[in-house]
Amino acid sequence: MEEENESGVVKKFMYVNRKAPYGTIYALEVLEMVLISAAFDQDVHMAFLDDGVYEIKKGHTPKGVGMKNFSPTYRALEGYDIEKLYVEKESLEERGLTEDDLLVPVEVMSRADLAKLMSEMDVVLTA
C-alpha cells in the first residue's frame, strides 16, 4: 500500500498511546493512522505509556464482550516496517506488568528518556 508522497518530506511521527483498549475506541482507530503514515514513508514511532501499555498486553480475548480482537494488528506492524515501539518503564511498573506480559517486541525506556525522545519528534498524536 504505497501512497503518493510527492513532497519527499520525511517527518518523525510519534503516536502516543495512553488509553486502555476496548473501553474506548482510540486504541483501535489509532492503528489505522499508524499504518497509513507508514504507507506515506514517514519515520513512525509508537509510544505506550499510562494505560496505553494495556493495549499490548498478551491474551486479549474480547469474544465475551462481543468486540473484535484487534491485538494481532500490533504483531503485523513489523510487516509495514513499523518497528520503533517504545514502552515506558514506570507505566509498566505502576500496573504490575513486565516486558514478558507484552505481545510484541518493544524497547522499554524510562520516563525521562521517553520525554527526550518525544521532544525530538516533528508530529505527535496522542490517542
Partner: peptide, 8 residues
C-alpha cells in the same frame, strides 16, 4: 513552538 502535543 516547534510541535504541539495534546495530552488527550
Amino acid at each position: 513552538s516547534r510541535v504541539v502535543n495534546a495530552w488527550l
